[in-house]
Nucleic acid binder design. Structure first.
Lengths: 118, 118
DNA sequence: GTCATATATACTCATAAAGGAATATACCTG
DNA sequence: CAGGTATATTCCTTTATGAGTATATATGAC
């Protein structure tokens, strides 16, 4: 971990859509279509942000039949860990994050497309 | 503090020059010319990044005669606090931050232009 | 093999950000 | 007031980022 890596972590975190995705993934591993559905955003948008997060090792993915399940990496990066924790704290105060989590919980993530992702 | 603010904090942090500036200001309040000198960057570049940090309330400035003294805001933002602390931890490991601090300590910040800034 | 579904990628456009050169402003000295 | 120094701002160019449309790929069902 050096200054460049640190910068890169912040680049990953400085987009609201990506923060919203990470907020969801903090709860559970999810497939693209569920993220898309909960956030109410287009497939391309979600897919591209996931690709971005993946390319910088914040998330990892695993194929299950037609679906790609994304989860937050088990990282050895303390700064990232710390910020994900902060995100979790804020998720109980911020209206956007709260609404997302509410919609997530109202969604049956084990049904429809993905079989129990986690 | 909401999700938009959070995003904005990360935007401030996702540029290496700004991180280097914050790393220096973590040590002491400094005038523009000293930051410029220690980082070896142009006046415009430093000035613009400081303006950016100031516009988002990460730093504040105070004029002393010809000089503008910048310091990190006493903020009530826990996420920012946390990340500045992380920056400080990393500054003893990362070559860029370490070299900057070394040059800072070799600079007489109380002389030349600014009278004791802090 | 075809078809449907889930996801990824390529291409394009619009906007933002970073940097440099030149210029403007603010302050001090005399 | 003029002249010098420190800093800020404007203008311009280049590059990066985000979003949309269309298309491609991967998998499963048949």
């Amino acid at each position: 971990m050096n200054s460049e890596d640190l910068c890169q972590v912040y680049r990953c975190l400085c987009d609201l859509t990506r923060l919203r995705i990470l907020n969801l993934l903090g709860e559970d591993a999810l497939c693209v279509c569920h993220i898309q559905q909960v956030l109410g955003e287009s497939q391309v948008k979600i897919s591209k942000h996931l690709a971005y997060l993946k390319s910088h090792h914040l998330v990892e993915s695993e194929r299950r039949a037609n679906w790609m399940i994304y989860r937050i990496c088990n990282t050895a990066n303390p700064i990232l860990e710390e910020n994900l924790k902060c995100l979790q704290d804020l998720s109980s105060e911020d209206p956007v994050f709260m609404a997302d989590l509410k919609r997530l919980r109202a969604t049956d993530t084990s049904a429809a497309c993905c079989p129990t992702a986690s």
